[in-house]
């Protein structure tokens, strides 16, 4: 299993698009904190920004494009054709020749993805929150370690969600488009919460409740419940993806 995970890690980190996801995802949140710094200072000084406990943690959301790209290309890279001169050849054929047990392969892929995304999320969270402390330290309380851990968990679950959808669609474009649009400044899920309160239980909305306290929310959900609901979404989609992956032709 260790060698499988090592192989999957090497395959993932050998993809140029993975590095786009890693660099973008890691740099975006700190850059936005830096860009926002003068505006945030003025808002704190003017008293318009009273609840500062989410500061920094809230900015992490913009970097989610990183885990989304990573989660999708772990799967989509297996399905794109390998070269111009062998149009029918896909990497998946070679992968399955090496590891015929499909569930073991999925377990290794999932582990590799979780390792990479958790590392990326930890680095990003530490850099972003340290930067927030340096810039606005006197006004912002240092966030509790559990909230930082919850943010890392949120990133990891988001990557797994992207990965599960890609397993179902076997194509990178559909999940990427859906998820990236939904990570925009005003997400579609957030719009839906204005239409029905049930939308509060969509994975991206409910997951953010694990570490964000802000009041702008229709239903009160405790952090642990929020984590469980998002995990349930991910587990359900992963189960569907795993069954399909197990049963479908290559």
């Amino acid at each position: 299993m260790v060698s499988l995970v090592r192989a999957e890690l090497r395959k993932l980190l050998g993809l140029p698009t993975a590095w786009v996801g890693l660099v973008l995802g890691t740099l975006l949140a700190p850059v936005v904190v830096l860009l926002n710094a003068p505006y945030t200072r003025r808002a704190i000084a003017a008293g318009t920004l009273t609840d500062t406990s989410d500061l920094g943690l809230r900015d992490l959301g913009i970097g989610l494009i990183g885990p989304m790209v990573l989660g999708v290309i772990v799967v989509s890279s297996e399905y794109t054709s390998t070269g111009k001169d062998a149009p029918g050849a896909r990497q998946l054929t070679a992968t399955l020749t090496a590891v015929p047990d499909r569930l073991r392969l999925l377990a290794a892929k999932t582990t590799a993805l979780v390792l990479v995304v958790a590392a990326q999320a930890s680095v990003t969270a530490v850099v972003t929150l340290t930067l927030t402390q340096v810039l606005h330290g006197e006004h912002v309380p240092a966030p509790a370690l559990t909230r930082v851990a919850a943010a890392v968990l949120y990133w990891t679950l988001t990557a797994l969600l992207a990965y599960a959808i890609a397993l179902i669609t076997r194509n990178g474009i559909v999940p990427l488009t859906l998820l990236i649009i939904n990570s925009s400044v005003v997400s579609v899920s957030y719009l839906l919460t204005k239409v029905t309160d049930l939308a509060a239980y969509l994975p991206d909305i409910v997951g953010a409740r694990m570490f964000i306290r802000g009041a702008d929310f229709p239903v009160a959900i405790a952090p642990v419940t929020a984590g469980l609901v998002m995990t349930a979404w991910v587990v359900a989609l992963l189960a569907v993806g795993a069954v399909l992956f197990q049963r479908r032709d290559v």
């Binding site: 786009v20 989509s76 474009i173 990427l176 990236i180």
Partner: peptide, 12 residues
């Protein structure tokens, strides 16, 4: 996939 990532990053 890279083209979609690039474009959506810029637009969204």
């Amino acid at each position: 996939v890279p083209a979609v990532v690039l474009l959506l990053f810029v637009y969204v």
